[in-house]
C-alpha cells in the first residue's frame, strides 16, 4: 500500500478551468475509465473512488501502469482528494507521493474545476509533468464534455 503524502496546507500549484457541464458530468468524466482514456494520456482510471481505495491509471494502448495512488477523500460530485505517484518513467517514479485535490463547483450554468497540487518539489520530474500535462488534460476534459469529442492527438 502506498504511503500517504504529508500535507501542509498551501498548494504548490493550482489549475482552473470553466466547463459547460454539470458537476455530475465532470465527476463522471474524471472517474470513468471510458472517459479518462479520451483525455488523460490514454489512461484508464481504475478505482471504486471510496476513501482508502486504491487508484490506478493504466495506459489503454499497452496496459502499462501510469499512476498509482489512493483515494483519500471522495465527496461526489464536488471533491476528490487523491494521493498519487506517477510511475510511467523512472524519473517521475523516483519522486515521492504527492496530493491532488480536484474540486468541482457549480457556477450558474457552468462549473469550475480546480486542481490543486500539494507536496511536490518545485524542481522535480513530477512537477514538470504537472506543468506540462495538466493544462492538456483539463482542456481535453472540457472539449470532451462540451463537444463530445476528444482533443485531436498531437
Amino acid at each position: 500500500m502506498l504511503e500517504q503524502a504529508v500535507v501542509i496546507e498551501k498548494p504548490v500549484h493550482i489549475e482552473q478551468i470553466f466547463i459547460n457541464a454539470t458537476p455530475e458530468q465532470v465527476w463522471e468524466a474524471i472517474t470513468d475509465p471510458e472517459f479518462t482514456a479520451q483525455f488523460f494520456y490514454n489512461g484508464r482510471v481504475k478505482s471504486d473512488f471510496r476513501p482508502g481505495a486504491p487508484l490506478k491509471y493504466v495506459d489503454e494502448r499497452d496496459g502499462s501502469l501510469q499512476i498509482e495512488g489512493i483515494v483519500v477523500e471522495a465527496d461526489k460530485p464536488r471533491r476528490l482528494v487523491l494521493d498519487e505517484k506517477y510511475v510511467w518513467a523512472p524519473d517521475v517514479a523516483a519522486d515521492p507521493v504527492h496530493r491532488e485535490v480536484w474540486e468541482i463547483e457549480p457556477l450558474g450554468k457552468v462549473c469550475k474545476l480546480t486542481v490543486s497540487f500539494y507536496e511536490v518539489a518545485l524542481d522535480c520530474a513530477t512537477m514538470r509533468s504537472i506543468l506540462g500535462g495538466i493544462p492538456l488534460i483539463v482542456s481535453g476534459l472540457k472539449t470532451l464534455l462540451e463537444t463530445g469529442k476528444p482533443l485531436p492527438s498531437r
Binding site: 496546507e9 498548494p11 493544462p135
Partner: peptide, 21 residues
Amino acid sequence: VVTRRVGREKHHYLNPVPIKQ
C-alpha cells in the same frame, strides 16, 4: 490568477490554462 486562502493569508497562483487556450 487563482487564489487560495490558508488561515489569514491569501495566496496567489498563476493558472496556465487560459494561456494554453
